[in-house]
C-alpha cells in the first residue's frame, strides 16, 4: 500500500455487511454500546453491498474483487482511509480485494466495470481493520479497564478468534505493520477480556481453528465437527463461556447446538457470546441491553445466575 497512514484521529468508516444488519443483530447492538462507552465513533457506510465472503471467488475472480471494491470506494468517497468491519469474512474479502487492486491492470479492469455500473471507482488506498483491532488500538486494555464498572470476576472465558480474523496476513497485513495483532497467536481479544476482569483461557487447541461455517449447509458433518470441537476444547480448558468475534462463527456454532448435543452429548455445550456482549456487561450494561437472550446458547441464563442484572 502506497498512501500515507490514516490519521489516528480519523473517524473510520464502518462496513456492517449483511450479518451485522441481520443474523448478527446482537453483535451490532452490543458493538455500538461498547464503542459509545469508549468514545470510539464509526461512520456507517450507507448503501453498502454484501462482500461476497469466500463463495463468489470460486466462480469469478473479478466479481469477487469488484464487490468489496465498491464498498471500499464508498468509504473513500466519505473521505475515510480506515474501514472497520466486525465480521471475519468481511475483513478477509475486503482485504483480499485490496490486495488484488494493487495490480494496476486488475485495478483498471475492475474500476472500468464499476464505472459502467454507476458505482464509484476505488483508488486502493483504504486500510481494513477488524473492530477488535480497532478497539484494541484506540482504547487499549487501559481504556477498557477504565470503563469497567461490573468486572466479569470469576468468569472463565475462552477467546475464540476463528479463521479469517488475521489470516492470511498477505491480505490483512496483520503482523506486518506496527500495532497490529499476531497472525499466528492473536492476543488482542485475550487482553480486552482480561481488562474486563474475566479469567481468560489463553491456550486451548481450538482458539484459531475454523468453525466450518463456510460449509454449514454443504458439508454438515464438517461444520458440526468443528463447532463441537470449539466448545469441547474450551470446556476441557475449563471455560464457562466462549467469546466470539465473528457473526458467521457465532451463528454456525449456535445453529449446530442440537446436532452437537445429539452427537457428543449435552456435556459438550457451553454458552457462546460475542465479545462485545461481554464487554457491554462489564461496562455496566444489563443482560437485556447486551442482547444476550438473542443467543441460542443462552448466555443470559449463565450471567443472570452469576448475579448480572
Amino acid at each position: 500500500m502506497s498512501g500515507t497512514a490514516a490519521s489516528p484521529k480519523e473517524t473510520p468508516a464502518y462496513y456492517p455487511g449483511c450479518s451485522m444488519d441481520g443474523l448478527g443483530k446482537a453483535y451490532e447492538v452490543s458493538c455500538q454500546l461498547v464503542l459509545e462507552t469508549l468514545g470510539l465513533p464509526l461512520d456507517r457506510i450507507e448503501e453498502y453491498n454484501c462482500c461476497g465472503a469466500t463463495e463468489v471467488k470460486n466462480l469469478s475472480h473479478d466479481v469477487s474483487v469488484a464487490l468489496p471494491s465498491r464498498n471500499l470506494a464508498l468509504a473513500r468517497d466519505m473521505g475515510r482511509q480506515t474501514v472497520v468491519a466486525a465480521c471475519n469474512g468481511c475483513v478477509y474479502s475486503l482485504a483480499r480485494a485490496n490486495d488484488a487492486m494493487e495490480d494496476p491492470a486488475t485495478s483498471a479492469r475492475i474500476n472500468a466495470r464499476l464505472s459502467e455500473g454507476g458505482a464509484p471507482t476505488y483508488d486502493g488506498q483504504a486500510e481494513i481493520r477488524h473492530v477488535l483491532e480497532y478497539i484494541r488500538q484506540r482504547a487499549g486494555p487501559r481504556g477498557v479497564r477504565a470503563a469497567v464498572t461490573a468486572p466479569l470476576k470469576g468468569v472463565r472465558v475462552a477467546p475464540y478468534y476463528g479463521c479469517l480474523y488475521s489470516r492470511p496476513k498477505r491480505y490483512t497485513k496483520v503482523g506486518l505493520e506496527p500495532g497490529r495483532d499476531n497472525p499466528e497467536n492473536p492476543y488482542f481479544l485475550d487482553e480486552l477480556l482480561e481488562a474486563c476482569g474475566a479469567e481468560v483461557i489463553h491456550d486451548y487447541p481450538a482458539k484459531t481453528i475454523c468453525c466450518g461455517g463456510g460449509h454449514a449447509l454443504s458439508d454438515l458433518d464438517v461444520s458440526v465437527a468443528f463447532s463441537a470441537s470449539v466448545l469441547n476444547e474450551a470446556k476441557r480448558a475449563g471455560a464457562d463461556v466462549v467469546a466470539t468475534i465473528c457473526p458467521l462463527g457465532q451463528i454456525n456454532i449456535e445453529n449446530n447446538l442440537d446436532r452437537i448435543r445429539q452427537a457428543y452429548g449435552p456435556e459438550v455445550l457451553l454458552p457462546v457470546a460475542y465479545f462485545t456482549q461481554l464487554m457491554a456487561l462489564a461496562f455496566g450494561r444489563s443482560v437485556r441491553e447486551a442482547r444476550l437472550k438473542l443467543n441460542f446458547s443462552r448466555p443470559d441464563l449463565f450471567f443472570r445466575a452469576r448475579g448480572f442484572a
Partner: peptide, 11 residues
C-alpha cells in the same frame, strides 16, 4: 471440494 477456506495454508 471439502476445503472450508480457513486460509491457514495461505497464511
Amino acid at each position: 471440494w471439502r476445503c472450508v477456506s480457513c486460509n491457514k495454508c495461505v497464511e
